[in-house]
């Protein structure tokens, strides 16, 4: 059981780390939003799954309820985070921001 928890937490941390690096390293506005959106959804899903399993160590109805509530967090983040990313990209397109392209060679 503990191994499963650790596995989920490490997966979550891995995605959070990758997302954080991506936000810094990506070249422009749109591509930076991509890791930001990914990080929020899959990272939180893995982390909360790990924590919910850990919470069920001493199984009782209360613990089960708490775990279910934790998954509500995941549900709302899954709804709101991609929507927020979508609307930010939309605003960027409307404001006329060009997307990044690799610079062409001269000649």
């Amino acid at each position: 059981m503990d191994i499963l928890v650790i596995l989920f937490l490490v997966t979550g941390l891995f995605f959070f780390l990758g997302g954080a690096v991506g936000i810094i390293r990506m070249p422009d506005f749109y591509s930076r939003l991509h890791p930001a959106g990914k990080l929020d959804t899959l990272g939180i899903f893995a982390m909360v799954t790990g924590l919910a399993i850990y919470n069920l160590h001493h199984f009782s109805f209360d613990a089960l309820l708490l775990s279910a509530k934790m998954f509500l967090i995941v549900f709302f983040v899954f709804l709101s985070s991609p929507t927020a990313t979508h609307s930010i990209v939309d605003a960027g397109m409307r404001a006329g921001l060009r997307h990044w392209t690799k610079k062409k060679r001269k000649g």
Partner: peptide, 10 residues
């Protein structure tokens, strides 16, 4: 936007 409207309605 339809997506934003729907999600906000939920």
């Amino acid at each position: 936007d339809l997506i934003i409207k729907t999600v906000c309605r939920i």
